[in-house]
Design a protein around this nucleic acid. Structure first.
Lengths: 342, 342
DNA sequence: TTGTACGCGTTATCAT
DNA sequence: ATGATAACGCGTACAA
């Protein structure tokens, strides 16, 4: 790059337009009447200089950053496509509302979250994966700016939380397996490390699945499968031995399971029934497309952002609470489509 | 959330520590000698108040933001897993160097890029996908802060560009197909929309593939396949008709192709030879793992960030240029492993 | 309808 | 070794 061209300030604009600096400011904010002539003068000068207001100065003076912090769990078990949908959607909607997005990795734990508030780097935050007992909950209560949690911590009083309906989703999946004739169910659950991290949706999903199975009188075995090489293979060794073919409820590692079954020559929907918790893209791009309850990351993001902007516009009028995004079963080819009478 | 707790300033720290505000500043920057006693006093006060310096004020005064802008092509044809690797790696390395990452979508075209500079929102930028003739090139030259391009625009004088070695990669893949016995090659190329957008690596890869095929005396047909529903299916209809089984060179839509072949009952590595340009994760998670040249998004990111921080530390000493990250063939199961004499 | 002046919270220069 | 003070660029209360 050549030499650092200095960036013009509102003072430069003022000089070029032949007005005072404050007039330039008022033209931008529209907070007082400006004669059409002056307005044109100022706008022309801005165009000519390619002027943009200095973000730091504006933030310092106005106490608004026009930035939304997004706390991303890069190390979670979400598939890349699901996580990407969240990030992409949140980035798009932010820009549509004239906000930028600051990416914060949740590896730093609660620290990164605290930092962006304490440094006044954002006007709001979105947390993408929350623990049942999450240190960020208390921080959010004391925070100078609003936070939307995607997920339900145990103590969510006065918080804004939104998530997909994992409970109904789990029940739907279990019922689907029972309806196509499964007399035993084995669930491929999340990595024990993730479970130990106390991720909120794991017990929500698992509890609902177990209750639903109990109601149907079908035994359900939950196995937490490590993400490492071989985890899914061992799971299948264990589950399929002696020629057993239980209904599979796949909560995690959807892609790996689809491939692993295929490599064993076991055809989902023919030799075995498989249902999954999965976003649309992942369910479709398996060797055999999976019957699945969609996690709808796009919908969740959109609703979260709607709520957030309502909150930014009128903090008082926007009540806290838990919002649930409906789950939905999409039947694909991994289950036998036995006619049912319902 | 409860009522907006006010965030403490260096003035609050000074008062609590019983020193002047400037002393607090000097303790942070270390730019002058401070007695151990005073230093302790100040640091304790900071801890007690959970003080963090205000980002806007600091940026305004110091002309440094500690933010790196990342220009992300959400609408590109990169797989989610590949794009996510870039983002994740860049975010991690940034934090290790005490920088935050501002996410900018490249949908805005050059505009978003210009904006973050003009508003002084970042100390540097990384552009993740670049056109041969890219408007951001000229902007980067005039920009007040350095930019790293991942990809090679036509006019890259005085720019810092880094990318994977697509040329050698293409040649390697073509040679591999020839070596396992292909007498004709068909390439699954990028979406025409993406090609029309002039993405730099498309002609780089395609040109090298065509040259390599010519050198081997093997005809190569390049087909640009739309991303839409059915694009890959039509490609296969066309390519496989009359029982033809050309060597397949898959540059794009790797996952879709793997599934589509499987659904037709055509086994890669047995019925047909397939090689791909793909990152490790995508190549592994196909029904039949693909012999592929890896795009190494992690390596490219790391090297890009190393370069960037060198540039931030000593702009003069860090020369512009084009850097190439070596490509590497990994043989998996999608090609017949015919012994060769080399 | 417009200009002057102040302060947001820092960093860094000038004093002492 | 430390304190007072002047910018950085913007938004807005106060004057005219």
């Amino acid at each position: 790059m050549s030499e650092a061209a200095r960036v013009p300030t509102s003072k430069d604009v003022a000089r070029l337009a032949g007005v005072s600096q404050s007039t330039v400011s008022y033209v931008m904010t529209g907070k007082r009447a400006i004669s059409e002539k002056t307005r044109r003068l100022v706008l022309d000068a801005m165009d000519q200089l390619l002027y943009e207001p200095n973000a730091g100065a504006r933030a310092l003076r106005s106490q608004r950053t026009s930035v939304i912090a997004l706390i991303v769990p890069f190390d979670s078990e979400m598939s890349a496509s699901e996580l990407m949908t969240f990030i992409k959607e949140i980035a798009y909607i932010s820009r549509q509302n004239d906000y930028d997005v600051l990416l914060v990795t949740s590896d730093e734990g609660a620290e990164g979250f605290r930092r962006v508030f304490a440094r006044a780097q954002c006007d709001a935050a979105i947390v993408l994966e929350v623990a049942k007992s999450d240190k960020r909950v208390e921080l959010a209560r004391q925070a100078p700016v609003p936070t939307i949690f995607i997920g339900f911590p145990d103590d969510s009083d006065d918080l804004h939380c939104i998530d997909m309906d994992f409970e109904t989703g789990a029940e739907t999946l279990v019922n689907e397996l029972c309806d196509v004739g499964s007399t035993e169910i084995v669930a491929l659950g999340w990595d024990p490390v993730l479970a130990a991290r106390d991720v909120n949706y794991i017990p929500r999903f698992r509890g609902a699945a177990e209750s639903a199975a109990a109601r149907r009188g079908v035994p359900l075995r939950w196995l937490s499968v490590p993400r490492e090489e071989g985890g899914v293979e061992e799971f299948l060794d264990e589950v399929l031995r002696d020629g057993r073919r239980p209904g599979l409820l796949v909560a995690s590692q959807v892609a790996k399971l689809g491939i692993a079954l295929f490599r064993r020559g076991i055809r989902a929907g023919t030799d075995i029934d498989v249902v999954a918790l999965s976003n649309h893209a992942d369910a479709e791009t398996q060797p055999i497309p999976l019957t699945a309850v969609s996690t709808h990351p796009g919908d969740v993001s959109r609703q979260a952002m709607d709520w957030l902007f309502a909150l930014l516009r009128s903090p008082e009028a926007t009540a806290p609470g838990r919002r649930v995004v409906a789950s939905e079963l999409v039947r694909r080819e991994s289950t036998r489509h036995i006619p049912r009478d319902n």
